[in-house]
Amino acid sequence: MKSKTNTLHTARLKNNCPTCFGTDGLEITFTQNEKETPLFKKPDATIEHTLFCHTCKNSIYPVNWTEDIERVFDYNKKIAETNKQYLKVKPLFYILVVVAIVLVAAVVYVLIPKI
């Protein structure tokens, strides 16, 4: 099973960094993992986030966030959650379903005596 990470939303913030107090370096990124098997693709229900300051080159963890950063985070999280959950079926799944239906029909045809 392969796993792939998709970036849902990235935004540059104008808030002060809690570490270096710079106003132009904060960037928040929302990502979502997607599981891929030979039969289907399905994204995880959880959306992960990272807040990184390009000025001081540090990750800012939620413990250090100010109220302003939390407000902007909530706004951007609503934007990132616009992607819905889905289940994308691959062609191999359809082939297996058709083969199963044909096998069941053949078994029923052979086992039921003709009247």
Rank of each mutant, 00 (worst) to 15 (best):
S3H: 06
E70V: 09
N76H: 14
I101C: 10
P18K: 13
T29W: 00
D68K: 13
K42H: 02
F40N: 04
I69F: 12
V104I: 05
E36R: 03
A45Y: 00
K77W: 01
F21E: 14
V63M: 05
V110E: 04
V72L: 13
P18T: 14
E81G: 00
T29M: 01
I115A: 05
V110W: 09
K42W: 00
F73Q: 07
Y75Q: 14
A105K: 12
Y109L: 08
T29V: 03
L92K: 11
W65F: 12
I95T: 14
K57N: 09
K57H: 08
V99I: 13
L8W: 02
V110T: 07
P113T: 09
E81M: 05
K35C: 05
C20A: 08
L8F: 01
H49Q: 07
K57E: 08
T31Q: 04
T23Y: 15
W65N: 06
L92I: 10
L111Y: 10
L111P: 11
P18E: 13
L26C: 14
D24E: 15
T37E: 12
I79F: 00
Y109P: 04
F30L: 02
A45D: 00
N64D: 13
T5S: 03
L51P: 02
D24A: 15
K88Y: 01
L96F: 15
T55D: 10
L8I: 01
M1Q: 01
T66A: 09
C53D: 01
I69N: 10
P91I: 15
N6Y: 06
I95S: 14
T66S: 15
E67N: 12
P91C: 15
S59Y: 13
I79K: 03
I69K: 11
C20D: 09
G25W: 08
V107Q: 13
L39F: 15
T46R: 03
E67V: 06
L103V: 15
N83Q: 03
T7A: 02
F93P: 04
K78Q: 13
I60D: 04
V102T: 07
Y109M: 05
T5R: 03
I101Y: 04
P43M: 07
C56M: 09
N15R: 07
K114N: 05
P91R: 15
T5Q: 02
D74E: 07
E70Y: 11
H49W: 05
T82A: 01
E81A: 02
L87C: 02
A45K: 04
P113W: 09
T5I: 06
V110L: 11
A106S: 10
K90G: 12
I60G: 05
P91G: 15
N58T: 11
N6I: 05
N83C: 00
K35I: 10
C56D: 04
G25E: 09
R71S: 12
A105H: 08
F30T: 01
I60V: 08
T31E: 06
H9L: 07
W65T: 08
V107A: 15
A105V: 11
V108T: 14
K78T: 10
A100D: 09
V89T: 06
V99C: 10
I101T: 07
C53T: 05
T66K: 09
K14M: 08
L92P: 09
F30N: 02
H54C: 03
F30E: 03
A105T: 11
A11D: 05
C20Y: 08
K2D: 02
K41H: 05
D68S: 12
T37R: 14
I112F: 12
C17A: 08
P62D: 11
H49G: 01
